[in-house]
Amino acid sequence: MSKKKTTEPVGCLAVLLKLVGIDLGRIPTDKTLPFHLRDNFLSPAELSFYHVLLQSIRGEYTVCSKVNLSDVFFVSRPNENQGYRNKIDRKHVDFLLCDSKTMQPLLGIELDDASHAKKKRQERDQFVDQVFAAAGLPILHVPATRGYNVSELSEIIRSSLQSKKTVPRTPRVLNGERFCPKCQIPMVQRIASKGMKKGQSFWGCANYPECRETVWGDDSSAV
């Protein structure tokens, strides 16, 4: 007498995936996944500059490397500007100096090697520079060399940090509607759910949490 073959219930997602050729029962285990640790996260030139950079900032800032631009910047009105979002999605900045307490980005640093002399790379660099300028975040280009002057680099970084633009924090009011001073889009009225101002009304940017601009009550100045 043959035994009746039993099968486990299959979820709707599994059924849909099978229709497009994906069988959940055939997903490889961790031991067979084709992933390996890269040995060249930083190139020799980037690693050399990284250590010089640490000496130059003397522990005043936190250094992040190979940061995706979409982790630093956001696109206002994303439904209308999806193309711009796509243009930064696969681009990164070599190094990013951040405030050690808040991790707020302060300065982008690009290490320019011989590849930056190519026309396509120059076009890419020009666009990245425009992105940083539009967001009011300075970017510094450092030519890649075999040696660096720590004191000179420190002074250049300090000068670049001083060039950081301050975004005006006074919201524009038009026909009774407040516009975010940072994103220039209409703000949304909300009620604080916690903190010392719990229960109070305030205006917040519709791009929250990417933008945290707020205006409390009927005040016309952002805090």
Rank of each mutant, 00 (worst) to 15 (best):
N207I: 03
L153M: 12
V173R: 05
P34I: 02
D99R: 11
P171L: 08
V150M: 13
L53H: 05
D94C: 05
R158D: 09
D89M: 14
F127D: 00
I139Q: 07
E60Y: 00
P78M: 04
G11F: 05
I139Y: 00
L137M: 14
K18S: 12
Q130L: 09
R158Y: 04
P78L: 04
K3P: 00
L42G: 06
S100P: 08
S76Y: 00
K165F: 13
G83V: 01
H92W: 00
T7C: 08
H36W: 07
F49E: 10
I191P: 00
Q184A: 11
R121Y: 03
R124F: 01
S70H: 15
Q130C: 07
T62Q: 11
D219V: 04
L106W: 08
K87Q: 05
P28N: 10
K119Y: 06
I156V: 12
P138G: 04
R77P: 00
T6S: 12
I88H: 10
L140N: 06
V142W: 07
N79W: 00
T6I: 10
D39Q: 15
T62D: 12
G147P: 02
L19K: 15
A192C: 07
P28K: 11
Q130S: 15
F132T: 01
G195T: 02
K101T: 04
D23R: 09
D218M: 07
F132G: 02
C64E: 08
A14R: 15
G11E: 08
T102F: 01
L16M: 15
G25T: 01
H92C: 08
S48D: 10
K101D: 09
K118T: 03
C64M: 12
E60K: 13
R58Y: 00
L174D: 11
H36D: 11
P181I: 04
L42M: 15
I191W: 14
S65F: 12
F41T: 07
P44D: 11
S160F: 04
V223I: 07
L69P: 01
N149K: 09
E155M: 10
K120F: 03
I185E: 11
T62V: 10
M187W: 07
Q189G: 01
R158L: 09
P143W: 05
Y61S: 04
K3V: 01
